[in-house]
Design a protein around this nucleic acid. Structure first.
Lengths: 216, 216
DNA sequence: TAGATTGTTAATCGATTAACAATC
DNA sequence: TAGATTGTTAATCGATTAACAATC
Protein backbone atom coordinates (compact mmCIF):
# COMPACT_ATOMS: atom_id res chain seq x y z
CA UNK A 1 0.00 0.00 0.00
CA UNK A 2 3.00 2.33 -0.39
CA UNK A 3 1.90 3.42 -3.86
CA UNK A 4 1.93 7.03 -4.89
CA UNK A 5 -1.62 8.36 -4.67
CA UNK A 6 -2.63 10.74 -7.48
CA UNK A 7 -4.05 14.11 -6.46
CA UNK A 8 -7.07 13.31 -8.60
CA UNK A 9 -7.82 10.29 -6.46
CA UNK A 10 -7.97 12.41 -3.32
CA UNK A 11 -10.36 14.85 -4.94
CA UNK A 12 -12.59 12.04 -6.07
CA UNK A 13 -12.47 10.33 -2.69
CA UNK A 14 -14.06 13.46 -1.19
CA UNK A 15 -16.76 13.22 -3.84
CA UNK A 16 -17.39 9.54 -3.18
CA UNK A 17 -17.74 10.32 0.48
CA UNK A 18 -20.29 13.04 -0.12
CA UNK A 19 -22.23 10.80 -2.45
CA UNK A 20 -22.14 7.84 -0.06
CA UNK A 21 -23.38 9.90 2.86
CA UNK A 22 -26.26 11.09 0.72
CA UNK A 23 -27.07 7.50 -0.30
CA UNK A 24 -26.88 6.44 3.31
CA UNK A 25 -29.40 9.10 4.31
CA UNK A 26 -31.65 7.65 1.61
CA UNK A 27 -31.43 4.28 3.30
CA UNK A 28 -29.08 2.51 0.91
CA UNK A 29 -27.07 -0.14 2.73
CA UNK A 30 -25.20 -1.39 -0.33
CA UNK A 31 -23.77 0.40 -3.36
CA UNK A 32 -21.88 -0.62 -6.47
CA UNK A 33 -19.23 1.36 -8.28
CA UNK A 34 -21.78 1.64 -11.09
CA UNK A 35 -24.29 3.35 -8.77
CA UNK A 36 -21.78 5.91 -7.59
CA UNK A 37 -20.45 6.42 -11.07
CA UNK A 38 -23.87 7.26 -12.45
CA UNK A 39 -24.57 9.78 -9.72
CA UNK A 40 -21.34 11.72 -9.89
CA UNK A 41 -20.58 11.02 -13.54
CA UNK A 42 -17.36 9.11 -13.11
CA UNK A 43 -16.31 5.87 -14.78
CA UNK A 44 -16.97 2.92 -12.42
CA UNK A 45 -13.61 1.41 -13.26
CA UNK A 46 -11.95 4.56 -12.04
CA UNK A 47 -13.81 4.37 -8.75
CA UNK A 48 -12.78 0.76 -8.19
CA UNK A 49 -9.22 1.60 -9.14
CA UNK A 50 -9.12 4.55 -6.74
CA UNK A 51 -10.38 2.40 -3.89
CA UNK A 52 -8.05 -0.45 -4.78
CA UNK A 53 -5.12 1.86 -4.07
CA UNK A 54 -6.02 1.61 -0.40
CA UNK A 55 -7.29 -1.93 -0.08
CA UNK A 56 -10.09 -4.21 -1.08
CA UNK A 57 -13.35 -3.07 0.45
CA UNK A 58 -16.08 -4.62 -1.67
CA UNK A 59 -17.78 -7.95 -2.25
CA UNK A 60 -17.70 -9.34 -5.80
CA UNK A 61 -21.17 -9.72 -7.19
CA UNK A 62 -22.58 -7.50 -4.45
CA UNK A 63 -20.83 -4.16 -4.19
CA UNK A 64 -19.79 -2.13 -1.18
CA UNK A 65 -21.43 -1.87 2.22
CA UNK A 66 -22.38 1.80 2.40
CA UNK A 67 -21.48 2.26 6.05
CA UNK A 68 -18.25 0.37 5.78
CA UNK A 69 -17.09 2.27 2.72
CA UNK A 70 -17.92 5.60 4.35
CA UNK A 71 -15.79 4.67 7.33
CA UNK A 72 -12.96 3.41 5.15
CA UNK A 73 -12.82 6.61 3.16
CA UNK A 74 -13.09 8.74 6.28
CA UNK A 75 -10.15 6.85 7.70
CA UNK A 76 -8.13 7.34 4.52
CA UNK A 77 -8.87 11.06 4.41
CA UNK A 78 -8.34 11.50 8.11
CA UNK A 79 -11.85 12.82 8.65
CA UNK A 80 -12.66 10.03 11.09
CA UNK A 81 -10.86 12.05 13.72
CA UNK A 82 -11.87 15.36 15.23
CA UNK A 83 -10.08 18.37 13.73
CA UNK A 84 -10.13 21.77 15.33
CA UNK A 85 -10.25 25.00 13.38
CA UNK A 86 -9.31 28.56 14.28
CA UNK A 87 -10.71 31.36 12.13
CA UNK A 88 -8.89 34.69 12.02
CA UNK A 89 -11.01 37.66 10.99
CA UNK A 90 -14.50 38.17 12.35
CA UNK A 91 -15.88 40.14 9.42
CA UNK A 92 -18.51 38.92 7.01
CA UNK A 93 -16.34 36.23 5.53
CA UNK A 94 -15.10 34.95 8.87
CA UNK A 95 -18.63 34.92 10.24
CA UNK A 96 -19.85 32.96 7.23
CA UNK A 97 -17.15 30.36 7.75
CA UNK A 98 -17.83 30.03 11.46
CA UNK A 99 -21.51 29.52 10.74
CA UNK A 100 -20.87 27.02 7.99
CA UNK A 101 -22.95 24.02 8.97
CA UNK A 102 -21.42 21.14 7.10
CA UNK A 103 -18.08 21.04 8.90
CA UNK A 104 -19.44 19.08 11.83
CA UNK A 105 -20.56 16.20 9.64
CA UNK A 106 -16.97 15.60 8.72
CA UNK A 107 -15.29 15.89 12.05
CA UNK A 108 -14.31 19.54 11.78
CA UNK A 109 -15.23 22.08 14.38
CA UNK A 110 -14.45 25.75 14.64
CA UNK A 111 -13.34 26.27 18.24
CA UNK A 112 -11.86 29.77 18.10
CA UNK A 113 -12.29 33.06 16.23
CA UNK A 114 -9.84 35.91 16.45
CA UNK A 115 -9.95 39.57 15.54
CA UNK A 116 -7.80 42.56 16.42
CA UNK A 117 -10.72 45.00 16.51
CA UNK A 118 -11.44 45.81 20.19
CA UNK A 119 -15.06 46.50 19.24
CA UNK A 120 -15.45 42.91 18.09
CA UNK A 121 -13.51 41.11 20.82
CA UNK A 122 -15.96 39.70 23.33
CA UNK A 123 -18.87 39.70 20.86
CA UNK A 124 -20.30 36.40 19.73
CA UNK A 125 -20.68 34.62 16.40
CA UNK A 126 -23.22 31.89 17.01
CA UNK A 127 -22.14 30.76 20.45
CA UNK A 128 -18.45 31.33 19.93
CA UNK A 129 -16.88 34.36 21.59
CA UNK A 130 -14.48 36.41 19.46
CA UNK A 131 -11.01 36.45 21.04
CA UNK A 132 -8.26 39.00 20.84
CA UNK A 133 -5.71 38.20 18.17
CA UNK A 134 -2.91 38.44 20.70
CA UNK A 135 -4.21 35.30 22.45
CA UNK A 136 -3.87 33.24 19.30
CA UNK A 137 -0.74 31.41 20.32
CA UNK A 138 -1.95 30.41 23.74
CA UNK A 139 -5.38 29.29 22.56
CA UNK A 140 -4.14 27.29 19.62
CA UNK A 141 -1.68 25.42 21.77
CA UNK A 142 -4.11 24.92 24.67
CA UNK A 143 -6.93 23.72 22.44
CA UNK A 144 -4.64 21.77 20.16
CA UNK A 145 -5.88 23.48 17.00
CA UNK A 146 -4.30 22.25 13.76
CA UNK A 147 -6.24 24.10 11.07
CA UNK A 148 -6.08 27.87 10.57
CA UNK A 149 -8.43 29.83 8.34
CA UNK A 150 -7.40 33.28 7.13
CA UNK A 151 -10.39 35.55 6.55
CA UNK A 152 -8.74 38.95 6.85
CA UNK A 153 -7.99 41.81 4.46
CA UNK A 154 -5.21 40.93 2.01
CA UNK A 155 -2.59 43.28 3.46
CA UNK A 156 -2.31 41.31 6.69
CA UNK A 157 -3.07 37.84 5.30
CA UNK A 158 0.55 36.72 5.11
CA UNK A 159 1.29 37.96 8.62
CA UNK A 160 -1.71 36.09 9.95
CA UNK A 161 -0.66 32.95 8.11
CA UNK A 162 2.78 33.24 9.70
CA UNK A 163 1.21 33.63 13.13
CA UNK A 164 -0.96 30.59 12.57
CA UNK A 165 2.06 28.54 11.54
CA UNK A 166 4.00 29.73 14.60
CA UNK A 167 1.07 28.73 16.75
CA UNK A 168 1.15 25.20 15.37
CA UNK A 169 -1.22 25.14 12.40
CA UNK A 170 -0.60 22.24 10.02
CA UNK A 171 -3.15 23.40 7.44
CA UNK A 172 -3.77 26.97 6.32
CA UNK A 173 -6.90 27.73 4.37
CA UNK A 174 -6.58 31.25 2.98
CA UNK A 175 -9.65 33.16 1.80
CA UNK A 176 -7.94 36.53 1.44
CA UNK A 177 -7.51 37.60 -2.19
CA UNK A 178 -3.77 37.15 -2.21
CA UNK A 179 -1.53 34.10 -2.32
CA UNK A 180 0.05 33.27 1.01
CA UNK A 181 2.97 30.92 1.54
CA UNK A 182 4.18 28.76 4.40
CA UNK A 183 6.99 26.32 5.18
CA UNK A 184 6.87 22.99 3.38
CA UNK A 185 5.67 21.20 6.49
CA UNK A 186 2.40 23.14 6.33
CA UNK A 187 -0.24 22.57 3.67
CA UNK A 188 -1.52 25.85 2.29
CA UNK A 189 -4.67 26.13 0.28
CA UNK A 190 -5.30 29.49 -1.32
CA UNK A 191 -8.88 29.91 -2.35
CA UNK A 192 -10.30 32.81 -4.23
CA UNK A 193 -13.64 33.51 -5.83
CA UNK A 194 -11.70 35.25 -8.56
CA UNK A 195 -9.77 32.19 -9.64
CA UNK A 196 -12.98 30.22 -9.76
CA UNK A 197 -14.70 32.87 -11.80
CA UNK A 198 -11.84 33.24 -14.25
CA UNK A 199 -11.79 29.51 -14.65
CA UNK A 200 -15.48 29.23 -15.43
CA UNK A 201 -15.43 32.36 -17.54
CA UNK A 202 -13.43 30.71 -20.27
CA UNK A 203 -16.21 28.26 -20.83
CA UNK A 204 -18.72 31.10 -21.07
CA UNK A 205 -16.85 32.98 -23.73
CA UNK A 206 -17.08 30.28 -26.34
CA UNK A 207 -14.31 28.17 -24.83
CA UNK A 208 -16.04 24.86 -24.40
CA UNK A 209 -18.78 22.92 -22.74
CA UNK A 210 -18.23 20.84 -19.68
CA UNK A 211 -19.21 19.57 -16.33
CA UNK A 212 -17.66 21.75 -13.69
CA UNK A 213 -17.12 20.88 -10.07
CA UNK A 214 -13.52 20.76 -9.13
CA UNK A 215 -12.39 20.42 -5.56
CA UNK A 216 -11.95 23.78 -4.15
CA UNK B 1 -6.58 26.94 -33.50
CA UNK B 2 -9.49 24.50 -33.16
CA UNK B 3 -7.52 22.22 -30.84
CA UNK B 4 -9.06 20.81 -27.72
CA UNK B 5 -7.88 22.88 -24.78
CA UNK B 6 -7.13 20.87 -21.62
CA UNK B 7 -8.83 21.99 -18.41
CA UNK B 8 -5.39 22.18 -16.84
CA UNK B 9 -4.36 24.79 -19.36
CA UNK B 10 -7.26 27.04 -18.40
CA UNK B 11 -6.38 26.78 -14.73
CA UNK B 12 -2.77 27.64 -15.44
CA UNK B 13 -3.71 30.52 -17.71
CA UNK B 14 -5.43 32.16 -14.74
CA UNK B 15 -2.23 31.65 -12.76
CA UNK B 16 -0.07 33.13 -15.50
CA UNK B 17 -2.33 36.15 -15.62
CA UNK B 18 -2.09 36.73 -11.89
CA UNK B 19 1.68 36.36 -12.00
CA UNK B 20 2.03 38.67 -15.01
CA UNK B 21 -0.06 41.39 -13.43
CA UNK B 22 2.13 41.19 -10.35
CA UNK B 23 5.28 41.42 -12.49
CA UNK B 24 3.81 44.35 -14.35
CA UNK B 25 3.17 46.19 -11.09
CA UNK B 26 6.85 45.61 -10.33
CA UNK B 27 7.75 47.35 -13.55
CA UNK B 28 8.73 44.35 -15.66
CA UNK B 29 8.10 45.00 -19.32
CA UNK B 30 9.40 41.69 -20.59
CA UNK B 31 9.18 38.16 -19.17
CA UNK B 32 10.39 34.74 -20.25
CA UNK B 33 8.65 31.42 -19.67
CA UNK B 34 11.55 30.65 -17.35
CA UNK B 35 10.77 33.70 -15.20
CA UNK B 36 7.11 32.79 -14.84
CA UNK B 37 7.95 29.14 -14.29
CA UNK B 38 10.24 29.94 -11.39
CA UNK B 39 7.66 32.12 -9.69
CA UNK B 40 4.71 29.79 -9.90
CA UNK B 41 6.69 26.55 -9.94
CA UNK B 42 5.66 25.29 -13.35
CA UNK B 43 7.86 23.85 -16.08
CA UNK B 44 8.69 26.57 -18.65
CA UNK B 45 8.05 24.16 -21.50
CA UNK B 46 4.53 23.68 -20.22
CA UNK B 47 3.94 27.41 -20.17
CA UNK B 48 5.14 27.81 -23.75
CA UNK B 49 3.06 24.85 -24.80
CA UNK B 50 -0.06 26.23 -23.12
CA UNK B 51 0.38 29.57 -24.86
CA UNK B 52 1.17 27.93 -28.18
CA UNK B 53 -2.31 26.43 -28.15
CA UNK B 54 -3.67 29.91 -28.79
CA UNK B 55 -1.01 31.45 -30.97
CA UNK B 56 2.54 32.68 -30.98
CA UNK B 57 2.95 35.62 -28.65
CA UNK B 58 6.67 35.81 -27.84
CA UNK B 59 9.96 36.83 -29.41
CA UNK B 60 12.66 34.19 -29.65
CA UNK B 61 15.71 35.16 -27.68
CA UNK B 62 13.73 37.82 -25.85
CA UNK B 63 10.59 36.49 -24.21
CA UNK B 64 7.13 37.95 -23.94
CA UNK B 65 6.06 41.57 -23.69
CA UNK B 66 4.36 41.72 -20.30
CA UNK B 67 1.53 44.00 -21.35
CA UNK B 68 0.90 42.20 -24.58
CA UNK B 69 0.77 38.79 -22.92
CA UNK B 70 -1.60 40.04 -20.24
CA UNK B 71 -3.95 41.31 -22.91
CA UNK B 72 -3.68 38.11 -24.93
CA UNK B 73 -4.55 35.95 -21.95
CA UNK B 74 -7.36 38.25 -20.90
CA UNK B 75 -8.77 37.95 -24.39
CA UNK B 76 -8.49 34.17 -24.32
CA UNK B 77 -10.19 33.95 -20.93
CA UNK B 78 -12.81 36.51 -21.83
CA UNK B 79 -11.81 38.77 -18.97
CA UNK B 80 -11.04 41.64 -21.34
CA UNK B 81 -14.76 42.33 -21.43
CA UNK B 82 -16.97 43.59 -18.64
CA UNK B 83 -18.98 40.88 -16.86
CA UNK B 84 -21.85 41.63 -14.56
CA UNK B 85 -22.61 39.63 -11.45
CA UNK B 86 -25.77 39.24 -9.39
CA UNK B 87 -25.42 37.92 -5.85
CA UNK B 88 -28.40 36.24 -4.20
CA UNK B 89 -28.36 36.21 -0.41
CA UNK B 90 -27.36 39.28 1.57
CA UNK B 91 -26.09 37.47 4.65
CA UNK B 92 -22.50 37.30 5.78
CA UNK B 93 -21.35 35.27 2.82
CA UNK B 94 -23.18 37.39 0.27
CA UNK B 95 -21.84 40.56 1.86
CA UNK B 96 -18.32 39.21 1.76
CA UNK B 97 -18.63 38.43 -1.93
CA UNK B 98 -20.10 41.81 -2.78
CA UNK B 99 -17.22 43.49 -0.94
CA UNK B 100 -14.60 41.34 -2.57
CA UNK B 101 -12.15 43.82 -4.04
CA UNK B 102 -10.30 41.89 -6.69
CA UNK B 103 -13.19 41.36 -9.08
CA UNK B 104 -12.86 44.80 -10.64
CA UNK B 105 -9.27 44.17 -11.73
CA UNK B 106 -10.51 41.40 -13.95
CA UNK B 107 -13.51 43.02 -15.50
CA UNK B 108 -16.10 41.64 -13.10
CA UNK B 109 -18.53 43.85 -11.24
CA UNK B 110 -21.30 43.00 -8.85
CA UNK B 111 -24.24 45.11 -9.98
CA UNK B 112 -27.11 43.57 -8.01
CA UNK B 113 -27.77 41.83 -4.69
CA UNK B 114 -31.01 40.11 -3.86
CA UNK B 115 -32.62 38.89 -0.67
CA UNK B 116 -36.14 37.84 0.26
CA UNK B 117 -35.95 39.26 3.80
CA UNK B 118 -38.04 42.47 3.88
CA UNK B 119 -35.83 43.76 6.67
CA UNK B 120 -32.81 43.64 4.36
CA UNK B 121 -34.39 44.93 1.16
CA UNK B 122 -33.51 48.58 0.75
CA UNK B 123 -30.46 48.35 3.01
CA UNK B 124 -27.02 48.80 1.49
CA UNK B 125 -23.90 46.69 1.16
CA UNK B 126 -21.13 49.11 0.27
CA UNK B 127 -22.99 51.36 -2.13
CA UNK B 128 -25.20 48.67 -3.59
CA UNK B 129 -28.84 48.59 -2.50
CA UNK B 130 -30.28 45.17 -1.67
CA UNK B 131 -33.19 44.35 -3.98
CA UNK B 132 -36.20 42.19 -3.43
CA UNK B 133 -35.75 38.69 -4.78
CA UNK B 134 -38.94 39.01 -6.80
CA UNK B 135 -37.28 41.63 -9.02
CA UNK B 136 -34.52 39.26 -10.01
CA UNK B 137 -35.80 38.52 -13.48
CA UNK B 138 -36.41 42.10 -14.48
CA UNK B 139 -33.09 43.36 -13.14
CA UNK B 140 -31.00 40.61 -14.66
CA UNK B 141 -32.51 41.15 -18.06
CA UNK B 142 -32.40 44.96 -17.86
CA UNK B 143 -28.81 45.04 -16.66
CA UNK B 144 -27.71 42.19 -18.88
CA UNK B 145 -26.27 40.15 -16.01
CA UNK B 146 -24.67 36.86 -17.02
CA UNK B 147 -23.15 35.59 -13.80
CA UNK B 148 -25.20 34.51 -10.77
CA UNK B 149 -23.75 33.82 -7.34
CA UNK B 150 -25.72 31.70 -4.87
CA UNK B 151 -25.01 32.67 -1.25
CA UNK B 152 -28.15 31.39 0.42
CA UNK B 153 -28.96 28.62 2.88
CA UNK B 154 -28.71 25.17 1.27
CA UNK B 155 -32.45 24.41 1.30
CA UNK B 156 -33.22 27.10 -1.25
CA UNK B 157 -29.95 27.00 -3.21
CA UNK B 158 -31.30 24.88 -6.05
CA UNK B 159 -34.43 27.03 -6.40
CA UNK B 160 -32.29 30.14 -6.56
CA UNK B 161 -30.01 28.57 -9.14
CA UNK B 162 -33.09 27.75 -11.23
CA UNK B 163 -34.30 31.33 -10.94
CA UNK B 164 -30.91 32.63 -11.99
CA UNK B 165 -30.88 30.36 -15.02
CA UNK B 166 -34.41 31.45 -15.97
CA UNK B 167 -33.31 35.05 -15.67
CA UNK B 168 -30.51 34.45 -18.14
CA UNK B 169 -27.43 33.51 -16.11
CA UNK B 170 -24.76 31.71 -18.11
CA UNK B 171 -22.53 31.01 -15.13
CA UNK B 172 -23.65 29.93 -11.67
CA UNK B 173 -21.19 30.10 -8.82
CA UNK B 174 -22.69 28.27 -5.86
CA UNK B 175 -21.38 28.83 -2.35
CA UNK B 176 -24.18 27.02 -0.54
CA UNK B 177 -23.06 23.72 1.02
CA UNK B 178 -24.97 21.57 -1.43
CA UNK B 179 -24.40 20.65 -5.06
CA UNK B 180 -26.68 22.48 -7.46
CA UNK B 181 -27.29 21.54 -11.07
CA UNK B 182 -28.29 23.44 -14.18
CA UNK B 183 -28.92 22.76 -17.88
CA UNK B 184 -25.89 21.95 -20.00
CA UNK B 185 -25.85 25.40 -21.52
CA UNK B 186 -25.00 26.88 -18.13
CA UNK B 187 -21.64 26.43 -16.43
CA UNK B 188 -22.06 25.57 -12.76
CA UNK B 189 -19.28 25.80 -10.27
CA UNK B 190 -20.02 24.38 -6.86
CA UNK B 191 -17.61 25.62 -4.27
CA UNK B 192 -17.46 24.51 -0.71
CA UNK B 193 -15.03 25.11 2.12
CA UNK B 194 -15.66 21.54 3.11
CA UNK B 195 -14.38 20.03 -0.10
CA UNK B 196 -11.27 22.14 0.16
CA UNK B 197 -10.69 21.12 3.73
CA UNK B 198 -11.22 17.44 3.08
CA UNK B 199 -8.83 17.66 0.19
CA UNK B 200 -6.07 19.28 2.21
CA UNK B 201 -6.77 17.09 5.19
CA UNK B 202 -5.45 14.00 3.47
CA UNK B 203 -2.05 15.60 3.23
CA UNK B 204 -2.12 16.45 6.91
CA UNK B 205 -2.84 12.94 8.05
CA UNK B 206 0.34 11.44 6.71
CA UNK B 207 -0.87 11.30 3.11
CA UNK B 208 1.83 13.21 1.33
CA UNK B 209 3.69 16.44 0.89
CA UNK B 210 2.91 18.86 -1.86
CA UNK B 211 2.38 22.32 -3.16
CA UNK B 212 -1.27 23.14 -2.95
CA UNK B 213 -3.11 25.79 -4.85
CA UNK B 214 -5.65 24.41 -7.22
CA UNK B 215 -8.08 26.60 -9.03
CA UNK B 216 -11.08 27.04 -6.92
C1' DT C 1 28.40 37.00 -34.05
C1' DA C 2 27.22 34.75 -29.49
C1' DG C 3 23.65 34.14 -26.23
C1' DA C 4 19.02 33.63 -25.19
C1' DT C 5 14.53 32.02 -25.63
C1' DT C 6 10.82 30.84 -28.43
C1' DG C 7 7.65 27.42 -30.83
C1' DT C 8 7.27 22.66 -31.72
C1' DT C 9 8.35 17.84 -32.25
C1' DA C 10 9.39 13.61 -30.13
C1' DA C 11 9.87 10.95 -25.72
C1' DT C 12 8.19 10.18 -21.26
C1' DC C 13 5.18 9.80 -17.89
C1' DG C 14 0.86 9.20 -15.59
C1' DA C 15 -4.02 8.73 -15.46
C1' DT C 16 -8.25 6.81 -17.42
C1' DT C 17 -10.76 3.20 -19.50
C1' DA C 18 -11.80 -1.40 -21.24
C1' DA C 19 -11.74 -6.03 -20.48
C1' DC C 20 -12.01 -10.09 -17.86
C1' DA C 21 -10.90 -13.76 -14.55
C1' DA C 22 -12.15 -14.32 -9.79
C1' DT C 23 -15.83 -14.94 -6.83
C1' DC C 24 -19.85 -13.55 -4.17
C1' DT D 1 -26.32 -22.49 -11.16
C1' DA D 2 -26.79 -17.83 -13.43
C1' DG D 3 -26.10 -13.05 -12.76
C1' DA D 4 -23.62 -9.43 -10.87
C1' DT D 5 -19.76 -6.92 -9.55
C1' DT D 6 -15.34 -6.76 -7.75
C1' DG D 7 -10.13 -6.30 -8.13
C1' DT D 8 -6.62 -6.03 -11.46
C1' DT D 9 -4.16 -6.34 -15.76
C1' DA D 10 -3.47 -4.59 -20.23
C1' DA D 11 -4.65 -0.98 -23.72
C1' DT D 12 -5.66 3.70 -24.52
C1' DC D 13 -5.51 8.16 -24.00
C1' DG D 14 -3.85 12.64 -22.68
C1' DA D 15 -0.73 15.64 -20.41
C1' DT D 16 3.98 16.87 -19.11
C1' DT D 17 8.74 17.23 -20.08
C1' DA D 18 13.00 17.19 -22.75
C1' DA D 19 15.26 18.48 -26.63
C1' DC D 20 16.36 21.35 -30.35
C1' DA D 21 16.03 23.92 -34.70
C1' DA D 22 14.48 28.53 -35.67
C1' DT D 23 15.37 33.15 -34.86
C1' DC D 24 15.50 37.40 -32.21
Amino acid sequence: MKKRIPDGTIERLAQYLDCLMELKRNGRTTVSSKDIGEIIDINPAEIRRDLALFGSFGKRGVGYDTDDLINRIKKIMGSDEQHKIAVVGAGNLGSAIVSYGKFKLHGFSVVAVFDNDPAKVGQKIGNLVISDLKDINKQMVDKNITIGVVATPPVVAQDIADMLVDAGARIILNYAPITVTAPKSVTVHNTSPLKELLYTLYYLSGGGKRKCSKAG
